[in-house]
Design a protein around this nucleic acid. Structure first.
Lengths: 148, 148
DNA sequence: TTTAATGCAAAAGATTTGCAACATG
DNA sequence: CATGTTGCAAATCTTTTGCATTAAA
């Protein structure tokens, strides 16, 4: 489930450009946290990001991970997903994509579809706010949960 | 944002039928917790459900609300939504509908669209598991967050 | 050098659990 | 009546915050 290196680099460039534009400092921690989500593909929660980044920055703290994750969310660089029993999960896949989510265990995977990318929304949506992105969420039961 | 009484009654009937079929006891607490979500329309989190149900059952405890909410989720009677900064939110709207979600503050509203109800999924999705429901999620910035 | 960001430790908030008492089927 | 369910209280897990220290621009 790793993301292609080229795609990761594009995401990193975008991240750095946005930070510069917003006057946000490019710290070692922020760069590694963003890289981790950008290359993950499995929509990790904060604690998983923390444990993975700690391999590269052993002194990093969990609260920095949280602060950074929400900062990235506010900058529109990352998106929060369905919660898996109390844990917020993050996704840095900003290209058009969709999700399959197991309603029981939280197993989540991306999928792609040109068809779904081009759906048009009813006008009523505009009354709630400005639309930034649209994606399709498929709920179901993953194979592992289906056998139980 | 209240749901029509007739719709609520249909949801209640379905809930009772599923519980009977599964051999799950229809306690006073479960009935009122489900009714609360069934009629809410605003996707409350556990604490909000607790505070509302307490008006009708003053002795109810928060842990019963949690246990019931996850039970309903496992039974497929309720669905969990985007988290709003750490809180899991629940939705008993099992009819076809879609969501607008503000990426910054978590403001969430349902919307309906015949068009979106009939989208077809790529075959690849089936490799992840059995599909139960499909809905469109629109992310954006609500009016309140846009002005800030 | 200035200001924002980090790490630490502690607090706050959300969710879960063990167990005795209780209510449903 | 038997068993599953509740309420309580305490435990646990997740997330946030204040503050002194550190590092980016």
């Amino acid at each position: 489930m790793k993301i292609k290196q080229k795609e990761v680099e594009q995401r990193m460039d975008h991240f750095e450009a946005v930070c510069r534009a917003e006057g946000i400092k490019l710290t070692h921690q922020r760069i590694e946290i963003f890289r981790e989500i950008a290359q993950a593909g499995d929509h990790p929660d904060a604690d998983l990001v923390f444990r993975r980044v700690r391999n590269r920055i052993p002194t990093i703290s969990l609260d920095t991970v949280y602060r950074t994750l929400w900062l990235l969310n506010d900058l529109g660089l990352v998106v929060t997903l369905i919660t898996s029993r109390g844990r917020t999960r993050f996704d840095a896949n900003l290209s058009r994509h969709h999700h399959f989510v197991c309603g029981r265990c939280g197993f989540t995977r991306d999928f792609y579809s040109d068809n779904l990318d081009n759906i048009s929304l009813p006008e009523s949506v505009a009354t709630y706010g400005e639309v930034e992105a649209t994606h399709v969420e498929v709920r179901g039961l993953c194979h592992r949960c289906a056998v139980k």
